[in-house]
Amino acid sequence: MTGEQDAVSRAWREHWGRLLALLVSRYRRLDLAEDALGDAFERAAARWPADGVPDNPAGWLLTTSRRRVLDRLRAEAVAARKEPLIVTDAAIAEATGGPRADPGDDSSLADERLRLVLLCCHPALSVESSSVLALRLVIGLPVPDIARLFLSQDAAVAARVTRAKRKIASAGMPFGLPGPDRLAERVDRVADVAYLAFTAGYVPAPGPELFRAALAGEAVRLLTVTREVAGGSPLVDAQLALMLLQHARRDARQDPASGELVLLPDQDRSRWHHDEIAPPRCWRRCCPTRRRVRRAGDSWRR
């Protein structure tokens, strides 16, 4: 892989979710935003190897996708013969605060990313739909990858994503932040969604692999991103700690020679990812009281 290709895939990993959140918050059109961002990455893959990687890759991608959205909006407007109306809307949006200047700045984007996560994990969507949608929109995994992770057909996953997006639009789910009194329960729902995806990664699958560490890894990422932007809660902290502790043992769970499952007492502890489990030990020490941890534990079992 060349440096430019590497830069494109790194930008995808690091910026997809936040750029999508920014575009949705600006244009309030999930479908348009997603298509435009996909197009922008496609252009990046074509252009960066020739022109070099821009100084601010996220900014380049944002500008390119905004142009795509505006192109599409104009095309729709022409089709509907309502161009002046759309231009006015765009002008209003510009006047009432456009996107933040620097998409690389995490703190200014925290709200938009959290909004996107909460939208995907809205309680009016099933947990299964939420997990697929969150992996697609927040993490930016392509549909075939999600299908592979959930041992499902591409068409089935694509249909699930489409149905969920249609429900978001037709039911009028807001791209907004709930009040402080409801935020905690909504974030806890994200933890449920992430845990479903995580568990799906450890369900035995046909084939030589006993479990799919990649899916579990994406679930860990989803919850990590959420914790970054929403802050922790007893449930989120404890669950992320649990997931990290379990996930750090992934390489030791299967015997490389026989392919058999290796139980915890027999695992080669040198193959655990010790670097990944340093933080939760620290959180465990930080947890305010034992009672709160136990309460968080109860909600896993429900």
Partner: peptide, 10 residues
């Protein structure tokens, strides 16, 4: 007539 689903739920 409500602004969005979350308002309606509330």
């Amino acid at each position: 007539e409500a602004p969005d689903l979350d308002e309606m739920i509330a």
